[in-house]
Amino acid sequence: MATSDRLLGYVESRKNLTGSVCGLAGVGIALTGAAGGLWPLVIAGLYAAGALIAPPERPDTPHFPDAGEQLDALRDDFATLRAYLAEVELPSSSRDRLTELDALVEALLEPGWVSDPEHLHVLARAVRQDVPEAVDTFVRTRWWSRVTPGTEPPERHLERQLSALREEMAAIAAALQEAEELRQQTHTRYLEERGH
């Protein structure tokens, strides 16, 4: 199978096509009688010369998802995360912090807001890694703290982690708000200057 794919690839290659065109020119020369008895060598030589001068094959440029495609995938992952979090038993204070974080992430994932790669990376890391790990670690640690009482309650760490994540998301929201305000001010200045 791999051999037939390679053979088919060569048949369609630039080198073969250019060599074939040059080989056909050799057939034309042979038909005129200019090549004499050496016509097979002329055809083969012209084919080889054409194959050698042909530009090399260029591999296709890889396709990487753009910001919109990345956001679509991230929204799907966020829906999966929400389904997971709905099943986890959390203390009310942690649940409140998680609800605030959830609302902020949901707003940031709305189409048309986040396009900066760094912001997108921070959002993806929060949805795909930070929040699931924080909650899972809490669930595991809480089980062990029941077995060995007297240690620091895992709720405190979870609340601190969720607060830190919310601050990170709030920083993205503030940057987006600042960019929109700057855009609005620039447009106002443009309209005012255009009128004069």
Score class of each variant (00 low, 15 high):
residue 49 A to R: 01
residue 7 L to Y: 13
residue 1 M to P: 01
residue 173 A to V: 03
residue 88 V to P: 04
residue 106 E to Y: 13
residue 80 T to A: 15
residue 53 I to K: 09
residue 195 G to H: 07
residue 180 E to F: 07
residue 95 R to I: 03
residue 122 V to N: 06
residue 5 D to K: 12
residue 59 P to S: 11
residue 52 L to F: 09
residue 104 L to K: 10
residue 81 L to V: 01
residue 185 Q to F: 06
residue 115 S to A: 14
residue 6 R to N: 03
residue 79 A to N: 04
residue 171 A to V: 01
residue 87 E to Y: 02
residue 81 L to I: 05
residue 17 L to S: 04
residue 27 V to P: 00
residue 3 T to M: 11
residue 41 L to A: 09
residue 85 L to G: 02
residue 81 L to A: 04
residue 125 R to D: 14
residue 64 F to K: 08
residue 9 G to N: 13
residue 174 A to M: 05
residue 110 E to V: 12
residue 54 A to F: 02
residue 182 L to T: 14
residue 57 E to H: 12
residue 75 R to T: 04
residue 68 G to P: 05
residue 133 E to K: 12
residue 120 L to T: 00
residue 72 D to K: 00
residue 99 T to Y: 07
residue 107 A to C: 08
residue 184 Q to I: 03
residue 126 A to D: 12
residue 82 R to K: 14
residue 180 E to H: 11
residue 35 A to S: 10
residue 162 L to M: 09
residue 109 L to C: 12
residue 179 A to C: 08
residue 87 E to F: 08
residue 168 E to S: 11
residue 137 T to V: 10
residue 96 D to I: 05
residue 92 S to Q: 12
residue 42 V to S: 06
residue 119 H to C: 00
residue 50 G to C: 04
residue 186 T to V: 10
residue 171 A to K: 09
residue 100 E to A: 12
residue 13 S to H: 05
residue 101 L to F: 07
residue 95 R to S: 12
residue 54 A to D: 01
